[in-house]
């Protein structure tokens, strides 16, 4: 698709997926922000990869908003020369999102890291293990309920427990 522009892509996305996709107001440093329902994520990803020339999944990350957890995807297109931001919301208890590793292999470790740091499960991920923290670590450190302390405070605490 050589005549692809953003002006045609986003309406095409909206008309194809209907209410499952919502185009949010964009910011100047990304091409657009698209909110996707978790169930249709892989289909949207496949559509963007095949028809939208977004061949490079640059970044998968997550934000803990306490009421919900937001998973973010940044996709690069060589034709459009820019990043598209996909956001998916999921519940804070047992958060889970379908994995996009079937579309972009490069998302593999990003998803593992998001599981490690925020505890988001990626359904269909081939090998969802912790990547940065050792296996068997009990916490997901980037949750807002996880707090940092001075090491001295921790020693005192450990003595009182």
């Amino acid at each position: 698709m050589t005549d692809l522009t953003l002006a045609t892509l986003l309406p095409a996305l909206e008309s194809r997926f209907g209410p499952d996709v919502k185009v949010l107001p964009s910011r100047k440093e990304v091409l657009g922000v698209v909110q996707v329902k978790g169930e249709r994520l892989v289909e949207v990803a496949r559509f963007l990869h095949d028809q939208g020339t977004f061949t490079h999944c640059a970044l998968v990350s997550g934000v803990d908003w306490i009421e919900h957890i937001e998973v973010l995807y940044h996709l690069w297109s060589d034709a459009l020369k820019g990043y598209l931001e996909l956001t998916v919301e999921t519940a804070p208890e047992e958060p889970h999102v379908p994995s996009v590793t079937s579309v972009w292999r490069g998302a593999n470790w990003h998803e593992r890291e998001t599981w490690d740091m925020l505890g988001v499960r990626f359904d269909g991920h081939p090998d969802l293990r912790r990547v940065l923290m050792p296996e068997g670590y009990r916490f997901h450190p980037l949750r807002k309920s996880f707090e940092l302390h001075e090491p001295e405070e921790l020693e005192v605490k450990a003595r009182h427990v």
Binding site: V63, R105, W109
Partner: peptide, 16 residues
């Protein structure tokens, strides 16, 4: 910052 996320190229290059 409420959240700061860094994407490292080396992370992905090792993953591959």
């Amino acid at each position: 910052p409420y959240r700061a996320k860094l994407r490292s190229p080396v992370f992905v290059n090792i993953a591959a």
